[in-house]
Amino acid sequence: MPAIDVDEYRNRYEQELERTRTQSTRTKGARSYTDGEPGDFIAVDDARDDLGPRVAQLLAVATDRDRKIDDRLDALQALSALEFLGARFSPYRAEWVSTLRTLAEDPRATVRRSALEQLALRQDPHARELLLTGLDKPASALVPDAVALQFLGHDGHGDAVPAARKVYRRSKGAAREEALRILATDPGSAAMLERLMKDKSEKSSVRRISAAALQDLDPSRFEKAARRVVADDDDFNEIRSTSLTGLALRRTAESAPDDALVQTVTKLHSSSRSPAVKASASRFLAATRDRSET
């Protein structure tokens, strides 16, 4: 994937989001649910409605293995939306969670994934156990390793770190990258993240994930590594751009003005042909000017 300026990326993303929103509104409007359809609930909701019958109906659809998969997923989505009703949904919450725990082991992969995702968002211990068991014994895994790690990443306690270390060692591709994202919560992994960030033989995505993780875990360590990467004309544009952006954001009190680094970045700004590197360099130089003015 060619490098892209972050502002341009943001614009594209916002346009895409707007397009999706418009499509989604159209789809919902065209569907015009008839009574009894899973998604119907949201349209008919009213503060005076008794949620009981509707919740029962949605749970029945979600757990009915003979129903079309889309109906079941719609029912899950509708139940998930009902949670936003807060206190009104409270009487049904326990049953909803129990249903999700059952569906986490459903024969249909998409249902399993949807249920596990919703449980993971609430850091459910049952789902956590299922996901960790799957990482330990891949033959019995309910979702792919990368997905399991993504879900386990909702737990800020880092309880999935030991499993992430194992996956990191044995995997390639998406699972390895998700493992790194989990290790980003572990101060004990800072040295490894620094090594990966500087390793030119690593994939660009791995290096950038490592840089972002290190910046959060140990800013001083990140700064040292980032300076080295930025000053290395043989290194790749993506990681140089990421490092520069990180340095621009690092505005801690202990950061003394550094003429050598400013010179390096100024030179890079004028010599680089990469729009991403140029944009990051501009951001860094602007941040440096702001800092010196304050």
Binding site: G52, V55, A56, L59, T63, Y92, E95, S98, T99, R101, T102, A104, E105, H126, E129, T133
Partner: peptide, 13 residues
């Protein structure tokens, strides 16, 4: 309302 049941449980280590 009919209760659903939790998934099958096996004792972990």
């Amino acid at each position: 309302m009919t209760k659903t049941t939790a998934g099958s449980r096996h004792r972990s280590a």
